[in-house]
Amino acid sequence: MSSDSEKPVAKAKPEEKPTPPKPAPKPAAKAEEKPVELPAFEKGISDKLVEKFGDKIEVDFVKEDRIGIKTSKENVHDVAQFIRDDLHYDHAESVTGVDFPADNEIEVVYHLGSYTESSLARQVLTLSTRAPRESHPIPGQDSTKLPSLRDIFYSVEFGEREVFEMLGVYFDGHPDNRRLLLPEDWADLPPLRKDFAIKGR
C-alpha cells in the first residue's frame, strides 16, 4: 500500500521542477559583422583586469567560460588579491606546474572559481605565472621561487606543496613547504620536470 502511494509522487517530481534556464551568455546579433566574437561576459572580466593592471598582465585567451591571464612573478600577488576582492573569485580548484625547458622557465597555473557569486559559477579563471628554471635544481635553495598565494586563497595550500615537490618551485610565504606525496628519502630530480625520464621510455 505504501509503495503505491509513493509511486505517483516520484513520477510527478520531474514535472514540478521547471527546467533551469541556461545561464550561457550567448553573443548578440553582432556575430555577422565580426568574424571573431569574444564572449561578452568573459570579455568584461578580462577588461576589468586590463584596466586595473595595464601591461603588467597579458590576456592569454578569452573563451566561453574560460579566461586566461598571464603575469610576472612580481605582480602575481597583487593580481590575485584583485581577483579575490574585486572580481569575487573565492577558491582555487587546482595548482599546476608545467615545465618549459626550452624557455628555461617553469609555469605555475592557478585555476580559480567562485561559489559565492552565482554569475561566475560557470567560469574558471586561469592565472599563470613563471619562475626561472635551474638546470641543476636544489629545491628550496635555488632561484626557482614564487610568492605564495596561500594568504589570499587558503585552498592552494596542498596544491602549492605538491608543485614544490613535483617541480621544485619554492613558494615564499607558504607556512608549510614540506613534501606531500613523494617519499621522504626521494633524492632524484623533481619528477614532473621534463628532464626526469621514466625508465625504459
Binding site: E93, S94, T96, V98, H111, S155, F158, G159, L192
Partner: peptide, 27 residues
C-alpha cells in the same frame, strides 16, 4: 573533477593535470 591538458601539437599531451576532488577535500 577537473582535467587540465597542455598540448604542444604533438600526438602525446605535453602535460595532464587531474584536479581531483579527494585532494581538494583533504584540506
Amino acid at each position: 573533477l577537473g582535467c587540465y591538458i597542455v598540448s604542444d601539437g604533438k600526438t602525446e599531451p605535453y602535460r595532464v593535470k587531474m584536479s581531483v576532488p579527494s585532494f581538494r577535500n583533504l584540506l
